[in-house]
Write a protein that binds this DNA or RNA. Structure first.
Lengths: 351, 351
DNA sequence: TTGTATGCGTTATCAA
DNA sequence: TTGATAACGCATACAA
């Protein structure tokens, strides 16, 4: 109470900056030593309930807020996790990040993120540096370009980090899932009777792109079907559109597996513009199941990903790394699944 | 050099945790006092170049990294900005956030973000609290629910904060832009000859939704056209789809202005499913110009938003608030613009 | 141009 | 159950 006034007095005293109440202010108000306040803060067992209540009341009154910087300084624990993002504004990564945040907070951690403008070594170094200075305890890298991980390895990062959808250094199962998803998509087309299946892949240096492509190739070879060189795209709908125009020149295929939904939508647009009917002439499968996939024309058959699950999983795995926990990893909870819609509605041959 | 060894020795000494080099380690290695190191860190003018170089070399060698927590503690400046996000995984907010991050970093600030699971007072309080504990110097609120700002006002937040797309407390011009965008969209339909125009709006408590709706109403009344009660949606494509089915029962209109692209795409899907031709029977305009808008069927006429510009602008405005700078605000650089595509291709009456 | 001392707010280690 | 004291890494006066 008195202190409440004291704290204010500091402000009125002159040019002194507004100081927020510290542990000592609370201590004085509650008439205890400031270590007692610290104990209340940290839920120390041995403290008289009455004392504790007095302290809590004082905190309330002074609108006390623990100073994270001071705490981090003395514990050398920041309770903060870092995230490096390789792509921005896309549905998948963003959903994962949101879930990551939620989960981290449930575990008592904050999140600090850094976007990657490009994959130049210097950019990556700066991002890591940025996060290191915030004393993050671990980093999740959701920048699935192969290159990024090579550079990270060279950088000799001295705190735990983990890649999403990476086969290298990270959650292996997740990368496997990507491959399985690509396989499922391709098998769906094969089951419909398609034999000549084109793959429009993601950028060559993306691990996700590579996994999905591997799934495609596996499915083909399992079915003893001829493989074709995939077309390397850039994830954008615009690319899909242009690819469709290109592909329309030699129509020696009846189905396309696109490595993501955006390109799939662009493909459908392109085929439509040159008068190629989807799905009657060409079937298309996408990957991701973005919210608009169900509402595209025709509604897109695609592989559903549990982006949120991925984000949550990343937290537990990263915390495991941080705590050097050798327990076996959680069961993979992020299985992809196929969502069949009209873009592959008609089985090839039943036209 | 010697210190390099020293620092390592600490580790080998036993259970002692890996300690990262501090300013003192650098000082010892460079054979100067640690204040000299501090001066190098802060680009103090009076320092002998040779000394400075010695210090820099030592930093390099010891892989020294300034401790952000210690610095924040002593300066009581965190160089961190906070962001509260009201929606997740959507194109617009995410793009803005990315730009915000970029710009903040260029200005020497870090960014800490907090997603809002819902708009419960407790959730909002927790988000603010979270950011306050990180000692952020200011907060950008990109959670344009009216409710959030009411609650923030009650919360009596004691650091600068700023709302995006808010008329209340924030960048007024941006809210105006939203209204102007809604007006442009509606006027486009009017110019095509439409008289009965339906508006599928966003959730009632969203400031953006309200601004766009105001633009719609203004355009109608300017043209002396009858107003109709807007349909209140939830931004999702699913809602748009259902709304289309609903609207198909009484087809007493020829055009729809949807408050965002996702709903517009859903509407087109719904109309298609019940055999209503877009744009011949019904014209549709969206809002946002998401990347898929150009590739929907039919390609969507929409209002382009400069999400990145908004994010960058937010940084400069927030820093202005923080520094209590009374300079006039920057010129609004985030004008919306209309992008005309096939969903409104045929003028009404020219069918 | 450089060095010494003090304190930021908190936790941790003692001692009472 | 409580309290005194020493760090944590740095910046900022002040002194040399």
């Amino acid at each position: 109470m008195n202190v409440h006034i004291e704290v204010r007095r500091v402000n009125e005293a002159g040019e002194e900056r507004t100081r927020t109440a510290s542990i000592r202010d609370v201590a004085r108000a509650a008439d205890v030593s400031y270590q007692t306040v610290s104990r209340v803060l940290n839920d120390h067992p041995s403290i008289r309930p009455a004392t504790k209540q007095r302290v809590l009341d004082a905190m309330e009154e002074l609108r006390y807020r623990p100073n994270q910087a001071a705490r981090a300084l003395v514990t050398s624990r920041s309770s903060t996790l870092g995230v490096i993002l390789g792509s921005r504004g896309e549905y998948g990564p963003t959903s994962s990040l949101a879930a990551f945040e939620d989960s981290a907070r449930e575990h008592g951690y904050w999140v600090n993120s850094a976007y990657l403008r490009d994959t130049q070594p210097e950019t990556i170094r700066a991002a890591v540096e940025h996060l290191r200075r915030q004393s993050v305890e671990g980093i999740v890298v959701h920048a699935p370009q192969v290159r990024v991980f090579d550079i990270l390895a060279e950088l000799d990062v001295d705190i735990p980090y983990l890649g999403l959808n990476t086969a290298e250094r990270g959650i292996v199962e997740l990368a496997e899932d990507q491959m399985r998803g690509g396989k499922m998509a391709t098998e769906h087309l094969i089951e419909l009777g398609h034999v000549e299946i084109v793959h429009v892949a993601g950028p060559q240096d993306w691990i996700e792109a590579e996994s999905r492509m591997r799934g495609y190739l596996h499915a083909l070879s399992d079915a003893d079907l001829p493989t074709r060189a995939p077309i390397l795209g850039d994830w954008t709908a615009d690319f899909g559109y242009r690819a469709a125009l290109e592909l329309s020149h030699r129509l020696d295929f009846t189905a396309v597996f696109a490595a993501n939904d955006a390109m799939a939508v662009g493909l459908m647009h392109g085929f439509r513009d040159v008068g190629i009917d989807v799905p009657r002439r060409v079937s298309i499968v996408g990957f991701d199941d973005i919210p608009l996939a169900a509402h595209s024309w025709p509604p897109l058959t695609t592989v559903h990903q549990q982006f949120a699950g991925l984000g949550r999983r990343a937290v537990t795995e990263l915390l495991r790394l941080i705590n050097a926990d050798d327990a076996p990893p959680l069961l993979a909870s992020v299985e992809p699944s196929l969502v069949v819609r009209a873009s592959t509605a008609r089985a090839f041959g039943h036209q």
